[in-house]
Design a protein around this nucleic acid. Structure first.
Lengths: 333, 333
DNA sequence: ATGAAAGCGCTAACAC
DNA sequence: GTGTTAGCGCTTTCAT
């Protein structure tokens, strides 16, 4: 028999109102009754029912989190930072894996609506963001993390992808590379990385030959395949910018298989600075995103928005950093 | 203004009872009214409020998931498989990171209780399982995954850790290694792996020198440090069994730093077969756990238990598999 | 086949 | 400083 506010009230010899007041620190309560109530709560091992409270207009103390795939180390780390910060505020996080699939996204959105969550953290791509827009219009607290949906007026925290792409390309350029290929994932954040790549190449007056831009999905295997394809060209590149660590790890495998030494024969730079970038051999030069900070900021923004109905939307652009490890080197010839 | 069962009833010109019946497929409803109600629901974009329903004794359609750390690739993959299967049943998953910290475990347990979850999946260590036991006694649906708490009578799905440990050690033994060290994490599952290691060594009449068993935490850095320590011994081992991939990755780094070639100078086997084992170089020989299957089974067990109050507790022991890659080889001398 | 009404656990006026 | 009371959105007897 689970303890209710009524059983606590009875135990403490007061009314439910009083108990409610001590739970929520509202109204005024004498120190003595407070103690009695607290004691009764402890004795009955009482914990308030959020569901019931939320019915009366209070918060559910739960956020939804939409990620493409938690088993992708980048999103696992994002999830961890989101959950940590949420927990600091007494919030639980409902995790949903969308695979960037529109059907699943929609599905989860309605599941989460049924669950009466207080806010939503979105890291999924949402190529058709109509439903999100609807929720936004209704004033539903939401924040995008590591994901951009230009059309939407919404709180956003991302790394500066353009800068990241520029950093990576410049690094390669400064090493003397002239033939650089890029592998991107087909999501919005990667578009900015590509744009920066093109810009940097153009500034250096370098061409981007056909086949030097390949678009694929985020998976080691895909990186491997893309790497194979690029490295089989007659006039292959001397460097590859892989737009995330998963892809870069795949490229490393492909290069090894083709007999290329890294970084002597081929430089590779990744993106995200996930755990993977330190386990590959050679370790990956990559662009780091301040994941801990991003997660914390995202949650803060959400909490903020919940308090003040309809505050202004913020767009937080955090700075990426170039982490030089062992997968890049000056061009030898 | 969110649609309620009342607004739907009004729209359809029926009572709330009728609407409830069509939602839950209970009682009997004429085909015509069914259609009307469905139409009204669609029109108002209605989705039932789980919180309110749960107040009346229905399920909340949410599970809790306690993992040590979602940013550990193994648990990320476990979480993914749990969430996938839960979603198949219309369930949401609340993810909690405990860091195997008793305080946090306790904290989350009470947070989750407030949330009225229908069941709990536990992958966290729970060195003091009193609270879990209490919940179990109350008949609360629970399942342990990749984690053992012998004292508890509870549904469990794990890999056969003993067999896994035996597999790993035998592999090394069959390669001619006689001096083998082991690095374990201080959790229960690893105890079985260690026991199997000892057993296999004894069967082969091989001693385990002082310092060949090191106990640490699950992190690359810890694996690195432990590796360094072991490899600095005068009479070092020719093979190391690292009880998870994170640790193994660290050992690889340590070996490299000390100038040891893998697998020529040192064989390494990991455990878990996470994404890490394919990105290291050389790729890791490791013991694979059928994570997808484990997650699915765990959820199935939970659903099963929810239906039939107090069924018998099952203990599912799945078979691990030896995955031979490149980090192990016959002893050269 | 349908509806009226009670009540799940809780909060918030409002009264005292 | 404390209690009475009305409902939040829903399910569920029990009538009709």
């Amino acid at each position: 028999m689970k303890a209710t506010i009524r059983s606590v009230a009875q135990e403490a010899g007061v009314s439910t109102t009083t108990v409610s007041k001590v739970i929520n620190h509202t109204g005024s309560i004498s120190e003595q009754t407070r103690k009695n109530v607290l004691a009764a709560m402890k004795k009955l091992n009482y914990s308030p029912d959020v569901a019931a409270a939320s019915l009366r207009g209070k918060r559910t103390k739960a956020f939804g989190l939409l990620v493409p795939d938690i088993s992708n180390p980048f999103y696992a780390e994002v999830a961890r930072s989101i959950e940590d910060r949420s927990h600091d505020f007494g919030y639980n996080v409902m995790m949903c894996n969308t695979d960037n699939d529109a059907e699943k996204e929609k599905n989860y959105l309605s599941l989460l609506t049924s669950q009466r969550i207080d806010g939503l953290v979105v890291a999924s791509a949402f190529r058709s963001p109509d439903l999100l827009e609807e929720m936004l219009d209704k004033g539903f607290p939401m924040v995008l993390i590591a994901s951009e949906i230009p059309k939407l007026s919404v709180n956003t925290v991302t790394v500066d992808d353009y800068k990241g792409g520029y950093l990576a390309t410049s690094h390669l350029l400064s090493l003397g590379h002239k033939k650089i290929a890029i592998i991107i994932e087909n999501v919005r954040s990667n578009a900015a990385r590509l744009a920066a790549f093109k810009e940097a190449m153009q500034e250096a007056d370098l061409p981007i030959p056909d086949g030097f831009i390949v678009k694929t999905e985020a998976a080691i295997q895909k990186g491997y395949e893309s790497g194979k394809k690029i490295l089989s060209m007659k006039e292959g590149p001397t460097a590859i910018f892989a737009c995330n660590d998963l892809l870069a790890a795949g490229v490393l495998q492909a290069a090894k298989e083709v007999g290329l030494n890294i970084p002597q024969d081929l430089s590779v730079v990744g993106f995200d600075n996930t755990v993977l970038s330190t386990t590959t051999s050679p370790m990956l030069t990559t662009i780091s995103q301040p994941i801990k900070l991003m997660g914390a900021k995202a949650v803060d923004l959400l909490i903020e928005e919940m308090k003040q109905e309809k505050g202004n939307k913020e767009r937080l652009l955090l700075s990426p950093e170039l982490i030089i490890r062992q997968s890049t080197a000056s061009i030898s010839i």
